[in-house]
């Protein structure tokens, strides 16, 4: 704080502090506390608010555990978010390795710019673009038919397929950058040493590069997984008749049933259960929280 005052003067420092405080407190902390408090109260007509029925209970949370359909939607959301994470890793790892160890330094700014440009377009537009690309009579099927790779058009948006494609496209860069940073920090001599000792390329990756990149893989995976599980836009736009995402249930509670109390409880359940899932996976892969924070 003293450094800030010395550098920017008292006025600017106060402005920074007040703005940051406003953002954290009013826009993040207070709404969450409000929802958290509501999640323990029953959904009542306005007349009965603060009345004798308005008591704290775990009923809203138990609603979830009493509903097999909601539990199954949650499980599928976790399974497919994990699948999206794995696909993102499979796409991002070779690219991150190429960018950090193989490609010419001079090319990097251009490649990064090309990777970033899609991010400048709104997520809604990008999802709609995929909706068009993946449509039954869309350009993807047309090209594949034209090239003779498929004989009949593929119904891309069926089951969770459209959602997975959309989520991978939207979040793959969140995997790429942590991986790029991790692999870039590996001393190239270690890769050469492994090769010099006789290792074929895949063993060098398995024994030297992947273990070194583990913190990057972990932080990229946590980000992609949490963002996917919490995504509402892509699962709504690229949904098929039988692809239900857990966030859609939260949305239904809040906007269709107008029951914000149960909706809040579901939102916190998503957060808590996903955190538990991530912690368990981190345990299994022996990743420490401090690795991710790096």
């Amino acid at each position: 704080m003293k450094d800030l005052v010395n550098r920017y003067g008292l006025l600017l420092t106060t402005v920074f502090a007040v703005l940051t405080g406003f953002w954290v407190l009013v826009l993040v902390v207070l709404p969450n506390i409000y929802l958290f408090e509501h999640s323990f109260r029953p959904y009542l007509p306005v007349a009965e608010l603060r009345g004798p029925k308005d008591v704290y209970s775990l009923d809203n949370y138990l609603t979830f555990f009493r509903s097999p359909i909601h539990i199954s939607v949650f499980v599928w959301t976790v399974v497919y978010s994990a699948l999206v994470t794995v696909i993102c890793f499979l796409i991002a790892y070779p690219l991150a390795y190429y960018l950090s160890k193989v490609s010419a330094r001079a090319l990097l700014p251009t490649i990064f710019l090309l990777l970033f440009i899609p991010l400048w377009v709104s997520e809604v537009l990008r999802s709609f673009a995929w909706f068009i690309i993946l449509a039954l009579k869309g350009p993807l099927n047309a090209s594949l038919l034209g090239l003779g790779i498929i004989e009949d058009p593929v119904r891309w948006i069926s089951g969770f397929r459209g959602v997975i494609i959309g989520l991978v496209y939207t979040y793959v860069l969140f995997m790429l950058f942590p991986l790029y940073n991790a692999i870039q920090s590996l001393d190239t001599n270690q890769i050469e040493a492994a090769e010099d000792l006789g290792a074929p390329w895949w063993r060098t990756h398995w024994r030297v590069i992947l273990p070194h990149a583990k913190p990057g893989i972990a932080s990229g995976s946590v980000m992609v997984f949490m963002l996917s599980a919490g995504s509402i836009l892509v699962p709504t736009l690229l949904a098929s008749t039988n692809s239900r995402w857990f966030t859609e249930i939260i949305q239904q509670w809040m906007f269709e049933s107008q029951d914000w109390n149960t909706g809040s409880a579901y939102a916190f359940l998503l957060l808590i259960l996903c955190t538990v899932f991530v912690s368990v996976v981190m345990r299994v892969f022996r990743v420490k929280l401090s690795d991710i924070a790096k």
């Binding site: 050469e192 040493a193 006789g198």
Partner: peptide, 16 residues
């Protein structure tokens, strides 16, 4: 390098 009968010790050793 992985086909040659040589072993290189790097300046920074490059231990794993």
């Amino acid at each position: 390098p992985n086909q040659r009968p040589t072993a290189l010790i790097f300046q920074n050793l490059a231990l794993f």
